[in-house]
Amino acid sequence: MKAFLFTCMLVPWLVAASARRFDQDSQLIPGSLPGRELNGYISDNLKSRRARRALPPTEEPDYTPVPEGADVIDLPTCLLCVCLTGSVYCEEVSPDMTTVPTLPKETAYLYARFNKIKKISNKDFADIVTLKRIDLTGNLISEIEDGAFSKLSLLEELSLAENRLVKLPMLPAKLTSFNANHNRLKTKGVKANAFKKLTKLYNLFLADNQLEAVPHIPESVRILHLQNNNITEVSKDTFCRSNDTYYLRLSLNEVRLDGNPVVLSKYPDSFTCMKVLPIGKYR
């Protein structure tokens, strides 16, 4: 009889203890929710990413959705985009983003890919001197005012790939990587000294354009992509120095000239200073 009474008291106590332990474990693991609730939480969180506002750390984010029919120009940047500390993500914004958005003063990284931005003016980045990286890949940019990047003394990476550029603007001196692949650039749209002063430039991507000649390549460049252009010849001074037979260009590790009309075997003296031959047509 005593054993029966003891069992009747013990079972409810064990059930209650197990429930308390489950609740404690859920609190110890951040974001731990039962299956359906967890899936719903993740789904709602992903849907709200583009509607976040940049607020001080002590305040809660505002998940107000973008109003239907709203004009993108009239909406705060951090309502259209995802604003994190120092970074702004404005990718495939809806409604269509046709101009560079107004950025928070402390922005260091801007990703505004796959929108419908058509032009970059001098005022777009004039006050954002903290920018280190700008990625405007996949827009409709056909014009960039010459001083648009002139105040960006910290800018290291700039991508203008997959746009409609016919000429390049003045570029910041500290660039380490520049990408203008898949544009409409011709040699007359690239100034002779466009890259000359970029002494820290490591990667230069100008593939899939309409260039007729190889532009001046800084000594620092390691990777050069010029494939699928209209380059017809390579001179002795394109990569080397015709007046210096001891000159070696050791930094240049990769040169792509495939997809151009030039037959590289016709210019054997143009690559004597290089440790690798350009990739391209030799017959």
Score class of each variant (00 low, 15 high):
residue 3 A to I: 10
residue 10 L to M: 13
residue 11 V to W: 04
residue 16 A to R: 07
residue 25 D to R: 12
residue 28 L to H: 08
residue 34 P to F: 04
residue 42 I to K: 09
residue 46 L to A: 10
residue 46 L to V: 12
residue 49 R to E: 14
residue 65 P to H: 06
residue 65 P to I: 05
residue 71 D to R: 10
residue 71 D to A: 14
residue 82 V to F: 04
residue 88 V to M: 12
residue 95 P to E: 03
residue 99 T to D: 04
residue 100 V to A: 03
residue 100 V to M: 13
residue 111 Y to L: 09
residue 119 K to G: 02
residue 121 S to M: 09
residue 123 K to T: 13
residue 124 D to E: 08
residue 125 F to W: 02
residue 130 T to E: 15
residue 134 I to C: 02
residue 135 D to C: 09
residue 135 D to A: 13
residue 141 I to D: 01
residue 142 S to R: 04
residue 156 E to D: 05
residue 158 L to D: 01
residue 162 E to S: 15
residue 170 M to W: 00
residue 174 K to V: 01
residue 176 T to C: 08
residue 181 N to W: 00
residue 182 H to D: 11
residue 182 H to Y: 04
residue 183 N to I: 02
residue 184 R to T: 02
residue 187 T to P: 06
residue 188 K to S: 15
residue 190 V to S: 14
residue 190 V to D: 11
residue 193 N to F: 02
residue 194 A to F: 03
residue 195 F to V: 06
residue 198 L to A: 09
residue 204 L to S: 12
residue 209 N to Q: 07
residue 218 P to F: 07
residue 224 L to H: 05
residue 234 V to R: 07
residue 238 T to W: 02
residue 247 Y to M: 06
residue 256 R to A: 14
residue 257 L to Q: 08
residue 264 L to R: 07
residue 273 C to L: 03
residue 279 I to M: 11
residue 281 K to P: 00
residue 282 Y to K: 06
